[in-house]
């Protein structure tokens, strides 16, 4: 969107799209697993609402009052009575959204790493190309710059996932996905914690529904880097997948 001259017509056009997108996405639900992101969740939701009217935060037992902030920001809230894990929070979100007639569900991170722009384009692409699943990928272009070690870990995860599923993805653990309701009905995440990333790909690949990967940019802000999924967790993920 850079390099656009601000003519009157452009200005008028710039004002119109948000509402139009919001209306177009009335059948879409954004599902955000929330665990102790009180600092940024307000911003994240405020950033989504202009384009997505339906946002639900699954508060997975946060102790920092993030749930209240999210609700005040305009999102629907479902609160787990105890902390269960990101996978469990996503599954709860899926059931919630399907119950409310969602046609498209967008999984979105609470820590501000994902861009609303990418979510928008992915939903639009799913509609246009009649796709049941759109996976965001950090490695389709060079915009995202993960650290060296992280890169190795992610590539390994991709290799393992590709071995065990029928999909050939470039980014196996990206939290930004668009899933249509027909595919979502076949998803029943049993991995409560971080191994859900691979589990969801396995279950979706079994549906044999059309999917695509879409380039996204992940913002490694200082905040999110400080909280990021530690590399040690990768060990947990691998073990979780083996000892089911």
């Amino acid at each position: 969107m850079s390099g656009m001259t601000a003519t009157r017509a452009d200005q008028a056009a710039a004002l119109a799209p948000p509402d139009a997108t919001r209306l177009a996405n009335a059948d879409a639900w954004v599902v955000i697993p929330l665990y102790n992101e009180a600092e940024v969740i307000g911003e994240v939701i405020a950033g989504l609402l202009p384009d997505f009217a339906n946002v639900v935060c699954i508060d997975d037992g946060s102790s920092d009052g993030g749930g209240v902030i999210a609700r005040a920001a305009g999102a629907s809230i479902v609160s787990h009575p105890i902390n269960l894990g990101q996978g469990a929070a996503l599954q709860t979100g899926f059931e919630y959204a399907l119950e409310r007639g969602a046609k498209y569900v967008v999984t979105f991170d609470a820590d501000g790493q994902h861009r609303v722009e990418d979510a928008k384009t992915m939903v639009a692409r799913a509609r246009e190309e009649d796709l049941a699943i759109v996976y965001g990928s950090r490695f389709l272009d060079d915009r995202t710059k993960p650290g060296f070690l992280k890169r190795i870990v992610l590539k390994t995860a991709v290799a393992v996932t590709n071995l065990t599923t029928r999909t050939r993805l470039t980014d196996a653990h990206n939290g930004l996905r668009v899933i249509r309701n027909d595919a979502l009905r076949h998803v029943k995440l049993k991995q409560d914690r971080m191994a859900h990333g691979t589990e969801i790909i396995v279950q979706l690949s079994r549906t044999k529904l059309p999917y695509a990967e879409h380039p996204v940019e992940v913002l490694y802000t200082d905040y999110s880097k400080a909280k990021g999924q530690s590399l040690l967790n990768s060990v947990n993920i691998l073990i979780d997948l083996i000892i089911r």
Binding site: V78, H80, I82, T92, E95, D192, R244
Partner: peptide, 28 residues
């Protein structure tokens, strides 16, 4: 024992999810 715990954890998750969704429906 490890497997029994895993099954037990899964049941707890189902229960907690049920409670969360019921509470959400109620407040809505």
């Amino acid at each position: 024992t490890v497997r029994a715990k895993a099954r037990s954890d899964a049941r707890v998750t189902e229960l907690a999810r049920s409670v969360a969704l019921i509470e959400a429906r109620l407040s809505e």
